[in-house]
Protein backbone atom coordinates (compact mmCIF):
# COMPACT_ATOMS: atom_id res chain seq x y z
CA UNK A 1 0.00 0.00 0.00
CA UNK A 2 1.34 3.40 -1.01
CA UNK A 3 1.55 5.77 1.99
CA UNK A 4 -0.75 8.76 1.38
CA UNK A 5 -1.24 12.15 3.03
CA UNK A 6 -3.40 10.60 5.74
CA UNK A 7 -0.62 8.45 7.00
CA UNK A 8 1.74 11.31 7.17
CA UNK A 9 -0.80 13.51 8.99
CA UNK A 10 -1.41 10.65 11.41
CA UNK A 11 2.31 10.45 12.17
CA UNK A 12 2.59 14.19 12.62
CA UNK A 13 -0.44 14.33 14.92
CA UNK A 14 0.95 11.47 16.98
CA UNK A 15 4.30 13.22 17.18
CA UNK A 16 2.58 16.48 18.20
CA UNK A 17 0.70 14.93 21.08
CA UNK A 18 3.71 12.92 22.20
CA UNK A 19 5.53 16.23 22.35
CA UNK A 20 2.71 17.91 24.26
CA UNK A 21 2.53 15.01 26.67
CA UNK A 22 6.26 15.15 27.21
CA UNK A 23 6.15 18.89 27.78
CA UNK A 24 3.55 18.56 30.50
CA UNK A 25 4.86 15.51 32.28
CA UNK A 26 8.64 15.83 32.27
CA UNK A 27 10.32 17.82 35.05
CA UNK A 28 13.69 17.88 33.41
CA UNK A 29 14.18 21.06 31.38
CA UNK A 30 16.28 19.27 28.75
CA UNK A 31 13.53 16.71 28.18
CA UNK A 32 10.97 19.50 27.96
CA UNK A 33 13.11 21.16 25.34
CA UNK A 34 13.26 17.89 23.43
CA UNK A 35 9.45 17.67 23.59
CA UNK A 36 9.21 21.11 22.06
CA UNK A 37 11.50 19.94 19.27
CA UNK A 38 9.09 17.04 18.68
CA UNK A 39 6.21 19.47 18.35
CA UNK A 40 8.16 21.59 15.91
CA UNK A 41 9.04 18.54 13.87
CA UNK A 42 5.42 17.45 13.68
CA UNK A 43 4.71 20.84 12.17
CA UNK A 44 7.56 20.28 9.73
CA UNK A 45 6.10 16.95 8.65
CA UNK A 46 2.76 18.69 8.08
CA UNK A 47 4.39 21.29 5.89
CA UNK A 48 6.23 18.71 3.81
CA UNK A 49 3.15 16.53 3.47
CA UNK A 50 0.87 19.33 2.31
CA UNK A 51 3.52 20.63 -0.05
CA UNK A 52 4.05 17.21 -1.61
CA UNK A 53 0.42 16.19 -2.00
CA UNK A 54 -1.39 19.45 -2.62
CA UNK A 55 1.05 21.80 -4.40
CA UNK A 56 3.65 19.47 -5.75
CA UNK A 57 5.17 22.06 -8.07
CA UNK A 58 5.81 24.65 -5.37
CA UNK A 59 8.54 25.00 -2.77
CA UNK A 60 6.86 27.07 -0.05
CA UNK A 61 6.40 24.24 2.42
CA UNK A 62 9.99 23.08 2.05
CA UNK A 63 11.32 26.54 2.53
CA UNK A 64 9.20 26.98 5.63
CA UNK A 65 10.52 23.76 7.00
CA UNK A 66 14.10 24.93 6.56
CA UNK A 67 13.12 28.17 8.17
CA UNK A 68 11.61 26.40 11.19
CA UNK A 69 14.70 24.23 11.55
CA UNK A 70 16.85 27.33 11.68
CA UNK A 71 14.58 28.84 14.29
CA UNK A 72 14.56 25.64 16.29
CA UNK A 73 18.33 25.62 16.31
CA UNK A 74 18.48 29.19 17.55
CA UNK A 75 15.83 28.50 20.15
CA UNK A 76 17.68 25.44 21.35
CA UNK A 77 20.83 27.52 21.75
CA UNK A 78 19.03 30.15 23.81
CA UNK A 79 17.16 27.57 25.87
CA UNK A 80 20.29 25.64 26.66
CA UNK A 81 22.06 28.83 27.65
CA UNK A 82 19.20 29.59 30.06
CA UNK A 83 19.31 26.05 31.40
CA UNK A 84 23.06 26.25 32.01
CA UNK A 85 22.63 29.50 33.90
CA UNK A 86 19.82 28.02 35.89
CA UNK A 87 21.97 25.07 36.79
CA UNK A 88 24.77 27.35 37.90
CA UNK A 89 22.51 29.30 40.18
CA UNK A 90 20.61 26.42 41.80
CA UNK A 91 22.50 23.21 40.96
CA UNK A 92 19.44 21.69 39.32
CA UNK A 93 17.62 21.65 36.03
CA UNK A 94 14.35 20.59 37.51
CA UNK A 95 11.52 22.88 36.39
CA UNK A 96 9.92 22.98 39.81
CA UNK A 97 12.98 24.71 41.18
CA UNK A 98 12.41 27.60 38.76
CA UNK A 99 9.10 29.11 39.76
CA UNK A 100 9.98 32.50 41.21
CA UNK A 101 8.10 34.35 38.45
CA UNK A 102 4.71 34.35 40.11
CA UNK A 103 2.13 36.83 41.49
Amino acid sequence: MQPGIYHLLLISTALFFIGVYGFFTRRNLITMLMSIELILNSVNINFIAFNKYLWANKLDGVLFTIFIMAIAAAEAAVAIAIIINLYRSRQSIDVKHAEELKW
Binding site: F23, F24, M32, V95, K96, A98, E99, E100, K102, W103
Partner: peptide, 9 residues
Protein backbone atom coordinates in the same frame (compact mmCIF):
# COMPACT_ATOMS: atom_id res chain seq x y z
CA UNK B 1 -0.16 32.77 38.44
CA UNK B 2 1.75 29.89 39.97
CA UNK B 3 5.10 30.55 38.32
CA UNK B 4 5.15 26.98 37.00
CA UNK B 5 5.93 26.93 33.29
CA UNK B 6 3.94 23.79 32.70
CA UNK B 7 0.78 25.30 34.17
CA UNK B 8 1.05 28.18 31.81
CA UNK B 9 1.58 25.77 28.94
Amino acid sequence: QSGKVQHYG
